[in-house]
């Protein structure tokens, strides 16, 4: 048999395959249209990062300016401050929320009172489903300088009331702790899932050998979720430039801008309040490119450590 007929044969086979799957391709029509319009057109529009975008001239009609938008950003007074704040919040949330979620998951798993454990689990999931507008409202109830509960306690103890949301010292903690409050229960789910997979014969063996409860946690429970801990931390590192736009947008105000402004909030203000579309897109593009590299790299590492993968 010569090459040509083999190629022809495999081509025919492919055509037959495609024909047999035509119903599936039909199912794809709408989702693909959606992707082209709402995911790929924006990528095409990303070219305005290299242009002096004028709404009247449109994306194609605007003048190319090379890397001017990028240099504007890198040389701007705000660049280091924005990067510093963004990384600060990302890392602090990682350091606070992830260990808290791990401890919570282990405690929920270890508790000898299953009903109580279930109740705590259900309650700690709940705040994840509340929006940041709602959490902002709850924070006002708790932290208001005049009649908030926290300041009532401070006054009761003889201290001076603090306006937490406009105080540059207190504000970062409010951001970090409110994020932990909202997300620790939800963050624990993945660890609980890993704990559920532990082979219970390990515990039986340990108890026969006379291991104490703490030894069991240290030598069985924690090591068996180690790959998942690595995975979660790596994925968080992959999105390190996302410091939580929705939260920050809701909580921050002009008095705390110096410690609150992150890349995303700045992009929003430059783009949609000051109409500097080119600059805002350039910063978005910069952030997107770094984010992609980190995520692909993190995924590679995750794949090496465990045989799971996120993408």
């Amino acid at each position: 048999m010569d090459m040509k007929s083999t190629v022809k044969r495999s081509k025919q086979k492919l055509m037959g395959d495609i024909k047999r799957h035509r119903a599936f391709y039909a199912l794809l029509i709408l989702p693909i249209c959606y992707f082209i319009i709402f995911k790929y057109l924006p990528i095409w529009n990303g070219q305005i990062a290299f242009k002096d975008f004028m709404p009247l001239d449109g994306v194609l009609g605007s003048r190319w300016v090379g890397l001017a938008n990028f240099t504007d950003f890198f040389q701007s007074f705000y660049f280091t401050e924005l990067l510093r704040n963004t990384l600060f919040y990302s890392f602090m949330k990682l350091f606070v929320s992830v260990p808290l979620s791990i401890v919570l998951a282990v405690a929920l798993y270890e508790s000898a009172r299953p009903r109580f454990s279930k109740l705590v689990q259900t309650m700690t999931y709940l705040p994840h489903f509340l929006s940041w507008v709602i959490v902002y409202g709850i924070l006002l109830v708790l932290l208001a300088p005049g009649d908030g509960i926290v300041n009532d306690i401070i006054k009761f103890l003889g201290g001076k009331p603090i306006d937490f949301l406009t105080d540059t010292k207190a504000f970062p903690w409010i951001v970090i702790l409110s994020d932990a409050w909202k997300e620790m229960g939800w963050g624990a789910i993945i660890f609980i899932a890993a704990l559920m997979g532990i082979d219970s014969s390990l515990f039986e063996a340990a108890s026969v050998e006379g291991a104490s409860a703490i030894q069991r946690v240290w030598y069985i429970t924690l090591p068996s979720i180690r790959p998942v801990i690595f995975m979660v931390v790596l994925l968080r590192l992959g999105t390190i430039l996302d410091a939580g736009f929705n939260q920050m947008f809701m909580l921050y105000s002009i008095p705390v801008f110096s410690v609150a402004d992150i890349i995303d909030t700045w992009v929003y203000r430059q783009g949609l309040l000051e109409f500097r579309f080119g600059l805002a897109t350039a910063v978005g593009l910069f952030k997107g490119a770094i984010g992609m590299l980190l995520l692909v790299f993190a995924n590679k590492l995750v794949r090496r450590i465990s045989d799971t993968s996120i993408i």
């Binding site: 790929y40 897109t281 978005g284 995520l295």
Partner: peptide, 15 residues
Amino acid sequence: IPYLFNIGLIPTYLV
């Protein structure tokens, strides 16, 4: 591709 490469707010706003 669009999942990994988050282009940001403005280009989507324009669409």
